[in-house]
């Protein structure tokens, strides 16, 4: 057992961000989720049983995500409007032979049922082992394996069923154009 070293946490920000994006389906919500996760972790000293901080962070991320879902269910519905307004940031994967965009892949994962989504994020996005992921998600390893298989299958089917949407691509280009309009200093 050892105490979590806060200084070692910032090296996990990128991976946590990817996991959060896949959970939320929105880049902006992912930023909030990661920040909230770190705020929770840092709110008091933490003792780790193993060496893997990432496993521990996944547990906190999961709890924070589920809490945010419950909170969001009590708020007015906002998801559609947010997605309508915030410009997409379609950065490609590091495999150019795939034309999928990050936003599309993560949005597809985010549509999975919660349990499937968490399993896929823990293993495929964060890179935890099956054993670590099962512990982080507090399920049996066999359960995790089943959920993971079904999650991947659903993602595959979903991606295969989505045709190219030229209007969406056009809308993204317009968003990017609009985001470039700067304020200028001075009285209106």
């Amino acid at each position: 057992m050892r105490t979590l070293d806060p200084q070692s946490l910032n090296k996990h920000v990128d991976r946590l961000f990817r996991a959060a994006w896949a959970l939320c389906g929105s880049r902006e919500d992912a930023e909030d989720l990661v920040q909230e996760t770190f705020a929770r972790v840092l709110s008091r000293p933490r003792v780790l049983r193993g060496d893997d901080e990432l496993y521990y962070l996944m547990r906190v991320l999961r709890n924070t995500f589920l809490t945010s879902l419950r909170t969001a269910s009590r708020r007015p519905v906002t998801a559609a409007a947010i997605e309508d307004v915030v410009a997409a940031d379609p950065r490609p994967t590091n495999r150019p032979e795939h034309a999928y965009e990050v936003q599309e892949i993560y949005a597809t994962i985010a549509q999975l049922p919660d349990n499937f989504r968490l399993a896929l994020v823990a293993v495929d996005v964060l890179g935890l082992s099956y054993k670590e992921a099962a512990q982080a998600l507090q399920v049996r390893e066999a359960t995790l394996t089943t959920r993971l298989f079904r999650a991947r299958k659903q993602v595959s089917e979903q991606l295969a069923s989505e045709p190219e949407r030229p209007q969406a691509a056009e809308a993204r280009r317009e968003d990017k154009d609009a985001s470039g309009v700067m304020f200028s200093e001075g009285a209106p």
């Binding site: 930023e31 590091n94 495999r95 495929d124």
Partner: peptide, 27 residues
Amino acid sequence: MSERPPHTEAEIVELVRSIDVQAPPEL
């Protein structure tokens, strides 16, 4: 999206794991 979509479990895993997008500097 003109490329063939991934079909197999292995292809999906490879695709998801290939994403290396970074968190924004602001975060």
